[in-house]
Simulated scan of single mutants.
Amino acid sequence: GYVWKTFREGFKKNFGQATILWIGAVLVGAFLVFDLWCCQFLAPLGAVRFFAFFLLIGAIFVYLLTIIYLFPLLAFFHVDTRKVIRDSFVMSVGNLHVSITILVIYGITAVVTYFFPMLFMFWFALGSYVASFFYRFIFYKYIKDDEE
């Protein structure tokens, strides 16, 4: 198909739902980062602070794993907001090795962009292109399971 026409139609169709998801993701991420900051600088030293710190790091890791699937899942499947959130969590945890690989790809993209900022659009496009193969692998695996 045509790239621009397909993008425009998908953008119009998913704008409202994607905006709600994005605002929710930013709020949850800000809450987790604020909690981590409070734990690090305001909590008294001791076992509780140590436990809370690692609990929050784990929550942020699960949050990042879930976030990386939200918008590709929304673009690939047309489902309601709750199902997108639930399915992105299930896919990220159920395919942990692929999810970590995608996080590493995005991390490398961020580091390369930091050192070569003039080509940031190229690096993000390249990172997204490479990650798309992993998303496609995961999504088709779930489509195949549904058909059977």
Results as ranks from 00 to 15, higher is better:
G1C: 05
G1A: 12
T6E: 13
R8D: 06
E9C: 06
G10D: 03
K12F: 13
K13G: 05
N14Y: 08
G16T: 03
Q17E: 14
Q17P: 02
A18P: 04
A18T: 05
I20A: 14
W22N: 09
V26Q: 14
L27A: 12
L27C: 13
F31R: 01
L36Q: 08
C38I: 01
F41D: 02
F41P: 00
A43H: 13
A43M: 15
P44S: 03
G46W: 11
A47S: 08
R49P: 02
F50G: 01
F51M: 14
F51H: 06
F53E: 09
F53N: 10
L55H: 12
L55R: 11
L56Q: 14
L56V: 07
G58L: 04
G58K: 10
A59S: 10
Y63V: 00
L64S: 09
L64E: 12
T66P: 06
I67G: 03
I67M: 09
I67E: 10
I67R: 06
I68G: 01
F71P: 01
P72S: 05
L73S: 10
L74Y: 12
L74R: 06
F77S: 04
D80Q: 08
T81F: 12
R82K: 14
I85G: 02
S88E: 00
V90A: 13
N95C: 03
L96V: 09
H97R: 15
I100G: 05
I100D: 06
T101Y: 08
I102T: 04
L103G: 10
I105M: 02
Y106R: 00
Y106N: 01
I108C: 07
I108G: 00
T113Q: 01
T113K: 01
F115S: 04
L119M: 12
L119I: 08
F120Q: 05
M121C: 09
F122S: 02
F122N: 07
W123E: 02
F124C: 04
Y129N: 02
A131I: 07
F133V: 04
F137A: 06
F137Q: 06
I138M: 10
K141Y: 13
Y142N: 03
Y142T: 00
I143W: 11
D146F: 15
E147V: 13
E148V: 14
